[in-house]
Nucleic acid binder design. Sequence first.
DNA 1: ACAATTTGACCGAT
DNA 2: ATCGGTCAAATTGT
Length: 272
Amino acid sequence: MDGYGSYGGEKSALASELAQVLAMVRELEARMDQDPLPAAARELCAELASSVDRSIRIARSCCVDSPASGSGSPRSDGGNAGAAQSKRRKGTPCVRRQLRAASVQDAAALDDGLSWRKYGQKDILGAKYPRAYFRCTYRHSQGCLATKHVQRADGDPLLHDVVYHGAHTCAQAAHPSAQQLRQELQLQPGHGAQEDQASPLALETEGLRAALLEPMTPYSFATVAGAGAGASAGADFAGWCPLLSPTALDWQFEELFTNAMEPFQWDLYTAN
DNA sequence: ACAATTTGACCGAT
DNA sequence: ATCGGTCAAATTGT
């Protein structure tokens, strides 16, 4: 219950940044129609870019640090090795990404270049499509605890919400994207501390993060695992970022990001 | 034969 | 009691 108050400032800052972005976009649109020429349009683009950048930072600062629940290390479950680490993901940071496939069958687009093995699928309350559960192929052979969940969006079958838990400790940990993500996660305030054993966090992330900060960075996805079940819940940005208003922000992000770059993906850090 | 996927059951959290 | 996450036996694919 505490909480949200302290984020009020950032929240409104974010809202105003986005409002500005929207205004600029409209102006830009108008100019594109009129003149063929863009000195002014260019300027707008530059402003747009920096505004978006600020928004991203604000959004991230809101989402990243976990709501003070911090201290609680739930418990060191004793017992049941298997089930043990499963449900108590609390405190374990995770990375969420939204991926858009080129077509409904384009599962390849969801692949992140790492090897995963599907171990379950579940119908989720309120979701039209089931959620698929994957774990690292080398879980048993190398003791790698990385897992990911994939869910398709109700409204947009091409959109997939992918959530990564735990870091790869297997040979794949050397994968560029895995390394990059791990590094970035360790920089996250509040998380870096406990990244030792068991689940260092692993997130391989590639996309968005970099793409957002450096809009023109081309991104490519390798494909390996055949995830076969993506799914993502419509981009409920608000769900990922409880601090943001579920209203306007939603579609603004959707429009800006999803449309702007086709097979686009983005990720947010959350502590769950 | 081995590896990956499917699917129902189980378990912990809420 | 319900829900989400995982396990493991059965099934399918290579």
